[in-house]
Design a binder for these strands. Structure first.
Lengths: 136, 136
DNA sequence: ATAGTCCCTCTAGCGGCTATAGCTTCAAGA
DNA sequence: TCTTGAAGCTATAGCCGCTAGAGGGACTAT
């Protein structure tokens, strides 16, 4: 049996976050000690590790809810899991594409060797969208 | 003079967002009509366009506050503007790098041709961080 | 006058936590 | 056994940048 602090150290999930996940229904309400403190089993630890890892990979809490549900049913087909993962991959790729366009624009406007604001490309570009090369 | 709705159409900033910016002190409290409705000048429109454009480029509201302040003082040196832009560029590049690592990992785990959850690489990987190639 | 659209304020909610306050419980040493 | 200090508890509010809704008032065209 682990206390919430031990669970936190083992998984790297902060204590208030663990309580938050419990509130959100991602993890079961654990047993309590006589003094009302949370006591976790190895299974609770595994579940939280799963969540942690999924969050690290950027899955939303809702996605994780689905993935956890699936992981409890090994005999089910795993198309749903693939769909969740592929959709997330697409989202990530979209975000990358967006950020790369942004990066290009920022690089371009940062190339400014003016001394004062009146001639500064950064300020000028922000004030006038027409000076941008790409749409955003 | 523009109503808030006209301002919204011209800039592409939604009405509640305009009011939010006013509350945050990004734009001045505009004049009001006899019936207490907001009435904006051309200057207010320019300022809001500046904000819109900066947000599109991903600057935070706090950054924008600084950039707006600078843009009001054309005689000042523009090092601060450059610093804000370069710092933001770095942030964007960091985010890209992070997302690319993520993309790689997601691609890898999505290559799964199992039929059921028991053999599914997606679920398996999430349950066991040791199966990951990179740190995250 | 009336209809229909616009606008007003105030409040609450989103996601995913994080922080604080004021309290209780636990574990280890004297 | 007593004490102390760390760890845990609940409840509530805050973060960012909006967005949505309720319940009303103002404007404009007919």
């Amino acid at each position: 049996m682990f206390s919430i602090g031990q669970l936190s150290k083992q998984t790297g999930v902060k204590i208030p976050t663990i309580r938050y996940y419990e509130q959100m229904g991602l993890i079961d309400t654990p047993e309590r000690s006589e003094g009302n403190q949370r006591r976790y089993t190895k299974e609770g630890l595994n579940r939280l590790s799963f969540i942690r890892h999924s969050r690290d990979l950027g899955f939303s809490v809702e996605d994780i809810r689905g993935l956890l549900e699936l992981s409890q049913h090994p005999e089910k087909p795993c198309d749903d899991a693939h769909n969740i993962a592929l959709q997330h991959l697409k989202d990530v790729q979209n975000r990358i594409a967006k950020l790369r366009r942004l990066e290009g624009e920022l690089k371009r406007i940062s190339k400014c060797d003016a001394d004062n604001v009146a001639d500064c490309a950064v300020i000028e570009t922000l004030a006038d969208h027409g000076l941008c090369e790409t749409e955003h």
